[in-house]
Nucleic acid binder design. Structure first.
Lengths: 213, 213
DNA sequence: AGGGAATGTTAGCGTGGTTAACTTTATAAG
DNA sequence: CTTATAAAGTTAACCACGCTAACATTCCCT
């Protein structure tokens, strides 16, 4: 184990480092960025503060990132990966083709937004820049593909048809809006408290089944 | 008409002003802010640039606004008022108690988001600060009250019950999410194009009527 | 051993938000 | 018609921040 590697561990606990090289600065800057985005919000994040947290000069990040937005993008990508993994994990317990699986996906979406509102905002903010990043676009496709697939399964089909794409998008719109309204505190302004679990079931049901004329 | 008032009109057309006093700097700074927010996005707005647009020194705004966020809040408030007025206007043509009125409200919501994405983002971004502003909170209540009222009417009730509050919130979540996904370009990534008008009707119908077991 | 390539640091530039101190104009009272 | 006061501008400066250039140190490979 090199001294720089030992250093990397020390640095994580705010100990001053002794070696010139840091160890794994890119990872630690990303983590510092993630924390700050969560604490202060994506708007009030500053590179300088991340540097202070990592115990490094303000010029150091530019050996690992092109600019500030690339740092934020790294955090956003990490968030998308975590969200995706959580979705896959929550899918497992439920039998294929059931509404439960659709509900599970929506639950993860909202749970993630509430657990990491800062990162969640990042994942959709700056989306002009995000579209230029291949990894980001791919992760987005993967996650949405998951939803589309479940919707098709729920209809009894293995292949995704236009109708599935449409329904999946409507479900996405719904949980997306619900997530944002929640983290923006709009739900607390309502008299009657809302049972998210119940709402999720209700909406999924309404969207997946034919309705009355 | 004072010379300063004449000045105010000139300034709107980028003409250099001749009088020391500006005329109606607060209004013109707000308008400049609105334009810049729309052009560059809320994140990339700078007070300095607004000052340049208004032909005034960078210290001038602080005679009219506490700080940068108060400028942005003024723009956000203006947006909420416009949105509210558009909703009231679009309501008029349709007979009370019909689904058409619900659909009309959703249509205005989405139309506004697409027409003024920058301002629309402002209306929900910075919401931690917005909650401290009474005018902002009131406008929010007014607009949401409009939806609640229509939902109750559609059920044949003049008074808003918990069930109406819930349905209204679900409808809000949906159009909110749909709006954001659209202005973030997520809809264009879909194969099958979506007919917003049709979707709006479909969803409103599904939400307002009982569904099958 | 030695020489890049990688990864840090320092110093400095430009922009931006904000304030303090000063100047000019509007307004209203005597 | 003065003239005091408040309102509404300006200038100059401070500090934080994003970023780059030039330099320093270390890693690692031959």
């Amino acid at each position: 184990m090199s001294s720089a590697e030992k250093n990397a561990k020390m640095q994580a606990t705010t100990t001053k480092r002794t070696t010139y090289h840091h160890g794994d600065l890119r990872a630690q800057l990303t983590e510092a960025t993630r924390q700050l985005v969560e604490e202060r919000g994506p708007d009030h994040f500053s590179v300088s503060e991340a540097c202070r947290a990592a115990g490094v000069s303000t010029a150091a990040p530019y050996k690992h990132f092109k600019d500030k937005t690339e740092m934020l993008r790294a955090v956003a990508l990490g968030g998308m990966q975590r969200q995706y993994e959580q979705m896959v994990a929550e899918l497992a317990p439920h039998p294929p083709g059931t509404l439960d699986r659709i509900v599970a996906l929506g639950r993860v979406y909202i749970r993630f937004a509430l657990a990491e509102p800062g990162v969640f905002r990042l994942m959709f903010g700056l989306s002009k820049d995000h579209d230029d990043d291949e990894a980001m676009v791919n992760m987005g496709s993967n996650t949405f593909g998951l939803v589309q697939h479940e919707v098709a399964l729920c209809r009894g089909s293995e292949t995704i048809e236009p109708v599935d794409e449409g329904r999946a998008f409507l479900l996405w719109s719904f949980v997306h809006g619900l997530s944002f309204l929640q983290i923006d505190g709009k739900l607390s302004k309502i008299e009657t408290p809302i049972d998210i679990e119940h709402v999720l079931r209700d909406v999924a049901h309404r969207m997946m089944h034919d309705h009355m004329a």
